[in-house]
Amino acid sequence: MNRIHALGTGIWQIPLLILLAGLVVPHLLSSGFHLRLASIVCIYTILCVGFNLLYGYAGQISMGQQGFFALGAYAYALLTQAGWPFYAALPASLLVCAGVTLVIGVPLLRLRSHYLAMASLCFGLIFAGVASRWIDVTGGTAGMMVPSLKVAGHLVSRTELYYGLVVIAVAVLLLQNFIVGTHLGRVLYSLRGDETAAESLGVNVTAYKLRVFVLSSVLAGLAGVGFALVSRQVNPSFGEFPILVTILTVSVVGGLGTRYGALLGAIVVVLAPQGLTAFGDLETLLYGVCLLLFLLFMPHGLSGFLRALCLRLFRPAAAKPAPRLKVSP
């Protein structure tokens, strides 16, 4: 298992490198399609960092993150349609996500076990249903157009939008690293461990579960707004099952409860299908087999694998085996 204490240092160094790499990427790409893929990597990173904090660290599973993703996107589209400028519509969309999360979370998070998973799943299903059937407001299955982003009279290009997404994704990683690298990270870990012990140590377990649930859905909403801007539209598929499957795949491939699992997973999940298109009809089959191999041979995802690799390479083999090596697979 990747432990917080092993990752307890370096909150900003790696995100800084990621930022630099992210800013270089457009100069290496030749087509708008590739830029779109790079933007989607950022969006999935933001989305899955939220899920990682909620499930990977705090151990609370939500099956409705795709609902909050779509809720953010729809709220932004509707507010923009109503004439709100970007700088007002974005925070308002995030507030909507936070508000809905509170409504779902307050009655549920007092309870232990899997009520949160069930209720959030219901929220996701209801939202997808409403989005596709409340045609007057949401545009039904056709969805709605989202006008190109304008900031202070300047029409934001796709490349500029990508830069914005990179900066936000890195900021989200920094936020996650701050939480995970300080006492907040230990508190999140205590929620998955033993609630009675955590309460006895003064942790308001219900409040913390609610806080991390709200944070994860606000990040999902933020990713949703980003996706709406990149797609220049919203439609009910934003809130449907494939997005949830993507979240779970990214998390498992990248490594749950690790700092950079969301980013690594997002890169693989976005790029792998592109590489597999050469196999034609076999694409889906190969993709599935690869995922199974991941689960079998890298139970802690790419992050866990890379960590174990680093430990093996950079620790002198002659020295006594580090205790952590025995723990990690």
């Binding site: 939480i179 300080t182 006492h183 230990r186 870990y189 205590s190 461990g193 140590l201 806080r211």
Partner: peptide
């Protein structure tokens, strides 16, 4: 009742909770 996944030291540090800044926003 200890917290698995944390080190021995971090388990002790959980005990500091009542004297620390509480909540994500206040910490930020």
């Amino acid at each position: 009742r200890v917290f698995p996944g944390l080190s021995v030291l971090e388990n002790v540090m959980m005990g500091f909770h009542p004297r620390l800044v509480d909540g994500i926003l206040p910490s930020l």
